[in-house]
Design a protein around this nucleic acid. Structure first.
Length: 440
RNA sequence: GACCCUAUCGUCCAGCGGUUAGGACACCGCCCUUUCACGGCGGUAACACGGGUUCGAAUCCCGUUAGGGUCGCCA
């Protein structure tokens, strides 16, 4: 039988990382087993069900690289995929329940009468759990339709899962206690329940459920902060799951080949931004220049870096890629390469250019480089070291003031790489300008 | 409160009856180095507690404690 999983978010206007991880696990499971991944919007109650709120979900999933086979925007054999458009289906199922004598009216609302029999949940992750449903005080008959005719989550969720032929329901552990209610509904409707897999929750640093207020609780945070989606997906799946062999950095194809619901653990995990950050750097380091450029470009454009040609941009990106941890930092890393109007860091100027003799050393270096043959990394390095030796100083005595002279800062890409990208003319011009700031 | 889940370094993840309890992030040293990163080496740091079972428990069982979740005419 074909595996069918789903992600069924409520359009609240943002995509929570916990939801994103749930989506990721569902997607992984479906793709791993050659099945289908379905997107369904659960908007029976939420009045924030706007086109924008829907778009946020689409964008978030797309950004993470999670594609769906059926959904509100692409249709499918069991649509519509928005609960607000499925009223007729729910009415039909309600009639079934009514015919079976499973409902009663209470205050205008319709409730489902619990059979009050023990219910066993066979969970792929949590194992076998038996629930005693006999006490109406702790397990009240659930409402399935409000007096105004609108539907309640538990009912429509089950109906849709039946109608859409879902085989596996992978969701947060906060639904574990709801599951026996859902199973009662399946039984009353004469449908076989899907396999359930309840994954542990993501907690904040206080050990509470991650909320909107917590940094990094929304997927857009990662996009804005300059995270690579592959790094975020990688980090998210490492929360509660392990590929074994102490593997940390994994690309999606690897995750796909290793993923297994049975290997998901049962303990809630605290979200650790530090590790996600580190993983981001690892992914950036490992990715090719084209991918890096693709991810960095939006930030470069947004910052208005006047990089000129595409080739020039690529040369700049190439020399900073190994240093960058956040893609959002790229403009700051490369800006000085494209304008003479870059800022000089006061402390850097003080420590290097204002050092006695700096002006003379800079002048000597400029002279040496002026006569250099091919303006290449190797030649530049050799010439600088030769000049340092001739002056009887350590290479650093030339390197540091030169770096500040051409970039305005004491940290940055490799010096010779900067020289190469700037070219002879601009490098020497910047030397000349810096001499004015330097101490004799 | 009732019910359900969970319990290994500060954090994430290994471990599934016999290990000097391992890896990663973070942190602290040292090395590499033109800066910053990267990388390398080393260090600090954990089996919640109490009973069992067993020749032998982080691993199995039972309690206690702690944390989380669910008990909606929210999803």
């Amino acid at each position: 039988m074909e595996v069918r999983t789903r992600f069924a978010p409520s359009p609240t206007g943002y995509l929570h990382v916990g939801g994103a991880r749930t989506a990721l696990f569902n997607w992984l499971y479906a793709r791993r087993h050659g099945g289908k991944f379905i997107l369904r919007i659960e908007d029976t109650d939420e009045k924030r069900n706007t086109a924008e709120a829907n778009q946020v979900i689409f964008d978030g999933l797309n950004w993470l690289g999670l594609d769906w086979d059926e959904g509100p925007d692409k249709g499918g054999p069991y649509g519509p995929y928005r609960q607000s458009e499925r009223g007729d289906i729910y009415s039909k199922y309600l009639a079934k329940l009514e015919a079976g004598g499973h409902t009663y009216v209470d205050g205008g609302a319709i409730r489902f009468r619990s059979p009050r029999k023990p219910v066993v949940v066979e969970d792929l992750i949590c194992g076998r759990i038996e629930f005693d449903m006999s006490n109406p005080a702790t397990h009240p008959d659930m409402t399935i339709r409000r007096p105004d005719g609108s539907w309640i989550f538990h009912f429509v969720n089950v109906v849709d899962d039946i109608e859409m032929k879902l085989t596996h329901v992978i969701r947060g552990e906060d639904h574990l206690s709801n599951t026996p209610k859902h199973i009662e509904l399946y039984q009353a409707l004469g449908a076989a329940p899907p396999k359930f897999a309840h994954i542990p929750l993501i907690l904040n640093h206080e050990g509470k459920k991650l909320s909107k207020r917590d940094g990094g609780s929304s997927i857009t945070y990662f996009l804005d902060q300059g995270y690579a989606p592959e790094a975020v997906a990688n980090y998210l799946c490492l929360l509660g799951w392990s590929p074994g062999e102490n593997r940390e950095r994994l690309d999606v194809p690897e995750i796909l080949s290793l993923f297994d619901l049975e290997k998901i653990n049962r303990r809630n995990a605290i979200f650790d931004l530090d590790k996600c950050f580190w993983l981001n750097g690892q992914h950036i380091l490992a990715m090719g220049l084209p991918r890096f450029a693709e991810l960095a470009k939006p930030f470069v454009d947004k910052a208005g870096v006047p990089y000129g040609t595409e080739e020039a941009l690529m040369r700049a990106l190439a020399i900073v890629k190994a240093k960058v941890k956040h893609l959002s930092d790229v403009p700051a890393w490369i800006g000085f390469l494209f304008t003479e109007d870059f800022a000089f860091d006061a402390e850097a100027v003080e420590k290097t250019l204002r050092k006695p003799g700096a002006a003379g050393r800079l002048a000597a270096l400029a002279e040496a480089l002026g006569g250099l043959g091919d303006w290449t990394h190797a030649n530049l390095e050799a010439k600088l070291k030769e000049a340092a030796a001739a002056m009887g100083v350590k290479a650093g005595e030339l390197v540091h003031p030169a770096r500040v002279a051409v970039s305005g800062r004491s940290v940055g890409p490799g010096l010779y790489e900067i020289f190469e990208v700037l070219g002879r003319e601009r490098t020497l011009a910047r030397f000349g300008r810096a001499k004015a700031m330097a101490a004799e």
